[in-house]
Amino acid sequence: MSERGLDRDGTIAREGALDRVPAAFAPVVDAARARITETFDGTRLHSAYIYGSIPRGTAVPGISDLDLQLVLHQEPSEADRADADVIEAALDRAFPQIDGVGVLLTGVGTLLSDLERHDAGFFVACLCTPLLGPDLAGRLPRYRPTSLLARETNGDLALALSRWRARAAEATTDTGRRVLSRGAARRIVRTGFTLVMPRWGGWTSDLDESAELFGRYYPERAAQMRTAAATGRTPSADPAVLSMLTDDLGPWLAAEYTAVHGERAPRP
């Protein structure tokens, strides 16, 4: 793999692996595998994956969260979501080395569809590490850092902004504002990176590197993006930080993204 996150043929390399999981998080991964197996039998579960800082080997005990992707044979139901919520809560309670658990649910048909090929498909093929079941990466293309990939992964930031503003207006506690600021900041940094990704010609999921790469092309917004990266790692309850993300940097970024890459194909 090259220094820009690419394989020798110029396609984006899969970024995680189970042998990169830090020792402190190995029991977490084992417990996640067991919980998923106990909860979702083979009639429901096609495959399971782990993604984020834990399989990248950069997780920090007490700070990093556990991110899981479950691919189901059918489209997720309310019962599937309820079972996933139970897994999230159980793992979060059991392991102090993780700060939160997130479980994504996707139907295999949706994931392999033409509409999701450069979004959910890319996510599984390049950003997820196989944990259980057959790996769907072999049924997906190899991806390059193109404008098409940029548009389909992050070309809908404006939709997220409207949801964040509504949640910010309803947030009455520091905990609520921290949760929102963390999610919004991470999304904004990733969008900032994919805005410049085709020009840079590579891939990274590292928040700090993403912010610095963005700043090379948009120096006037570099300080704000560095603040976003810091907030993505250590969330802030400061309303001013949240306002900067949702009312200043975010709207500018959404408009610039549309001008450069266009809008993501509409989803049902």
Rank of each mutant, 00 (worst) to 15 (best):
S2F: 07
G5H: 01
L6M: 02
T11D: 07
E15G: 07
A26Q: 15
V28H: 02
V29M: 05
A31G: 11
F40K: 03
D41Q: 10
A48I: 04
A48E: 00
G52W: 02
P55T: 10
P55L: 04
P55D: 04
G57D: 06
T58K: 12
A59F: 05
V60A: 12
I63K: 14
L72I: 08
L72N: 03
E78Y: 11
D83S: 15
V86D: 14
A89H: 11
A90H: 03
L91S: 02
R93D: 15
F95L: 11
I98G: 04
V101D: 01
G102W: 10
V103P: 00
V103W: 03
E116K: 12
E116P: 03
H118K: 07
H118Y: 14
G121P: 03
A125G: 07
P130I: 01
G133Q: 08
P134C: 10
D135P: 00
P141L: 11
Y143Q: 07
R144M: 08
P145N: 11
L148Q: 13
G155K: 00
W164G: 03
R165P: 01
R165G: 05
R165D: 13
A169F: 11
A169Q: 14
A171V: 09
A171S: 15
T172L: 12
T175K: 12
G176F: 07
R177C: 08
R178W: 08
S181Y: 06
A184Y: 04
I188G: 03
T191Y: 01
T191V: 09
T194H: 09
P198F: 05
W200K: 05
W200G: 02
T204L: 09
T204P: 02
D208Q: 12
E209T: 15
E212R: 15
L213M: 10
G215Q: 01
Y218W: 14
P219M: 12
E220P: 03
Q224P: 00
A230L: 10
T231I: 08
R233E: 14
S236E: 07
A237Y: 09
L242S: 04
L242I: 05
S243G: 14
D247P: 02
L249V: 01
L249D: 00
W252I: 01
W252R: 01
E256H: 10
E256D: 14
T258M: 07
A259L: 14
